[in-house]
């Protein structure tokens, strides 16, 4: 009897070891697949011998020529544009999103349900459709091409109220009894928000700031539309997209790699530092919706 149990235990242990080994192999393979593009892009950004696309990864001649060329190109302007846009948008958008989500989570007013349903329906229209008219309106206001930065900020911020789902999901999880207790003690609704809810909602505030920063940092379509043809109004994504068009790629391929590294570094570092909050936001709010 004892022997049998031991044998069974051994079998279980052995099968667990085997399955764990398989999992480790799979995980290592996956890690390689997921990291290869990033390793390649870093390696190729240090390639000196040629600027076009080649079939090998490790440079034959190392150097920082591409980064110097980047410094002497319009990349600086694009980078500054992107940075300003992302910074301003993340600040304003966070305020707007928090206002929306807190209100829809805490207040019960007459048009609330209708409003939420209406925004759900609005969200089913492809946002790209609005670009044509927004572009023409911005153009009439003089906020395109060279002045694309304020125009882009305006449009990003103005329509950001629609993205309230995630943080509303989070606010819903904060017990309402806290609000009521504070109200009994004589706090106004505004004080409840600033003194009680916001300190508790730190993870979701950081999540909102982070996503609001990363959105415009990588935005491509609308920025391309608005800055059309004028280098000084472009952001990094639009400018570097042009470098990979067929007639530019042979001169700019390695510069694209260098630019990619410079562009990705700050967001990647920011993201890695705040990863905890991002995960909390995604798992807490995103699914509940």
């Amino acid at each position: 009897m004892n022997e049998l149990r031991e044998k069974r235990g051994m079998g279980l242990k052995a099968s667990r070891t085997i399955s764990n080994t398989i999992i480790y192999i799979l995980l290592v393979l996956m890690s390689i697949i997921w990291l290869i593009p990033f390793v390649c892009i870093v390696l190729q950004s240090f390639r000196v011998e040629s600027t076009w696309q080649v079939g090998y990864v490790v440079p034959k001649q190392w150097g920082v020529d591409n980064y110097i060329a980047l410094w002497n190109s319009d990349f600086k302007t694009w980078y500054l544009n992107t940075f300003i846009i992302a910074l301003v948008v993340s600040a304003l958008q966070t305020v707007i999103v928090l206002c929306m989500s807190y209100t829809l989570s805490r207040f019960r007013f007459k048009i609330r349900d209708g409003l939420m349903r209406f925004m759900l329906i609005l969200g089913m229209f492809p946002g790209m459709l609005s670009m044509i008219i927004l572009y023409r309106v911005l153009k009439d206001l003089g906020l395109t091409q060279a002045n694309a930065v304020p125009g882009l900020i305006l449009v990003y911020v103005a329509s950001s109220g629609m993205g309230y789902y995630v943080s509303k999901g989070f606010f819903d999880t904060i017990p309402k009894s806290l609000d009521e207790a504070a109200r009994v003690d004589g706090a106004t609704r505004a004080q409840v928000l600033t003194k009680i809810i916001l300190p508790l909602a730190k993870p979701i505030v950081i999540y909102t700031i982070l996503t609001a920063f990363m959105g415009p940092w990588g935005d491509f379509v609308f920025a391309k539309y608005v800055s059309f043809g004028t280098s000084s109004g472009m952001n990094v994504a639009v400018g570097m997209w042009n470098w990979l068009t067929p007639d530019m790629i042979n001169q700019r391929y390695t510069m694209f790699c260098a630019g990619g590294v410079i562009d990705a570094l700050p967001v990647a570092i920011l993201f890695m530092c705040l990863q905890k909050y991002y995960v909390e936001g995604v798992t807490g709010g995103a699914v509940k919706g």
Binding site: W34, P37, I41, W241, L244, D263, A264, A268, M272
Partner: peptide, 28 residues
């Protein structure tokens, strides 16, 4: 987890454009 999450952290236009060029005819 962190290795996988890298792809979220890197702006999509960089990773997607680069991957698209990796698979080009004269790509890596």
């Amino acid at each position: 987890r962190t290795i996988l999450v890298m792809t979220i952290a890197i702006p999509q236009f960089i990773s997607l454009l680069y991957v698209s060029k990796m698979f080009a005819k004269n790509g890596i």
